[in-house]
Amino acid sequence: MGDRTQELELVARAAAGDGDAFGELVRPLEDKVYALAYRMCGDREDAYDLAQEALLKAYRALPRFGGRSSFATWLYRIVANTCLDRVRALRRAGPVVSLDNPLPTQSGELHREAADPTYDPERLTLAAEAEAEVQRALGRLSPDHRLVILLRDYEDRSYEEIAEIMGCSLGTVKSRLNRARAALRARLVQGELPSRPGVYSVGRRGVDA
């Protein structure tokens, strides 16, 4: 496959220290990496640092990329591990007050939203509250559970891909996902499941797939 050989060529150049080749390799993946990092730690600044750190780590580890899996999967594996490490460290350091978390005031919660020109304001206002709720519930899961749910439902990855990224067996993915969903459900019920219609998109791939 042309794509594959081109990718391997870029990998070889990047591994030899060609920064631009590396940039070309990761540019199409940056969005996904950043989004996952954001959903893992729930804070934009942390997500930025985390994504940078993960990609830099990948650059350093590039000489050890064996080409057994695709570059994207290999990169994701590093991203996932970096996220897990960082989130665990954050958890030990105590809860972080995020700018994205609502600020409790006497008259209710105040959301600190940084202006983001790329956001569709209509969609933002619709989903903001539900998003914050779900993000909070995710933040209360264990890092492993958070990651497996995000990989499956947020990124719509197959069990096989998840197993490769998390470095575990299919059976482990299944049971971990099972437990993670149960845990997320418990957290969401605790924090009142946001049930306003229209907030969630209808399943893109579900029963009918």
Partner: peptide
């Protein structure tokens, strides 16, 4: 299913 769609419905913030 509802929960999965909740997570699925989370926005994908683009890289700054």
């Amino acid at each position: 299913r509802r929960m999965a769609s909740l997570v699925r419905g989370l926005s994908h913030p683009p890289v700054p």
